[in-house]
Design a protein around this nucleic acid. Structure first.
Length: 190
DNA sequence: CCCTGATTCGC
DNA sequence: GCGAATCAGG
């Protein structure tokens, strides 16, 4: 595949829309996300700001260079520069000493009742549950779907265990039923 | 681990 | 110009 006008155009469009390189690549087909990123760079629109004036001169460290990093001991008397350390993020809370397994973050799945869920998503779940890994509590990891299935008081209980949807605690299907947009759960007729 | 984009460099 | 490999984060 080559970068025809149309393809470049679509690339620009999607990139402008904030689509990820991999998505764009998928859409275009025949190219990898690397190719897309490479092209994006060559087109000079690496920074999604492009237009405007928001030129954000980013200091590129460029790791490729060997950094002698000499900086031997310097004179202690140096008042030093106003080397202010930007504290932007609220730091990582000290990991609790007790690093137990801990299943889900906090919100353990609220087994939604079969109503008020879009039948569509519901069907998807049912379908996916058949392919579930059926993990036990201890087998859950950071990226296994933590959607519980069955009765905890039964042998017949397990967690979905499929790959989670980045960020979320559940796989795609379960994210679907877990996080319903307000709009859809609004006014379900009864 | 999964994913992002950024860079490099042989082709 | 191209993009895989690699790097650097999240």
């Amino acid at each position: 595949m080559s970068w025809t006008d149309e393809r470049v155009e679509l690339l620009k469009k999607m990139w402008g829309e904030g689509q990820s390189a991999s998505q764009i690549a998928k859409e275009l087909g025949g190219v990898t996300r690397n190719a897309v990123i490479g092209k994006v760079h060559r087109l000079g629109l690496s920074n999604r700001a492009g237009a405007g004036g928001a030129a954000k001169a980013d200091t590129k460290p460029a790791k490729a260079e060997a950094k002698p990093k000499a900086a031997p001991k310097s004179a202690p008397s140096k008042p030093a520069k106003p080397e202010v350390v930007m504290e932007t993020k609220s730091a990582t809370p000290p990991p609790s000493p007790r690093k137990q397994i801990i299943p889900a973050g906090q919100p353990l799945p609220p087994q939604p009742s079969a109503n008020e869920i879009s039948p569509e998503a519901l069907a998807k779940v049912n379908a996916v549950e058949k392919k579930a890994k059926k993990l036990s509590l201890m087998e859950l990891t950071e990226r296994t779907c933590k959607w519980p299935v069955g009765d905890p008081a039964t042998e017949n209980f397990w967690f979905c265990g499929l790959p989670v949807q980045q960020g979320k605690p559940y796989c795609e299907a379960h994210v679907g039923v877990a996080f319903q947009p307000m709009s859809s759960r609004r006014d379900r007729r009864r």
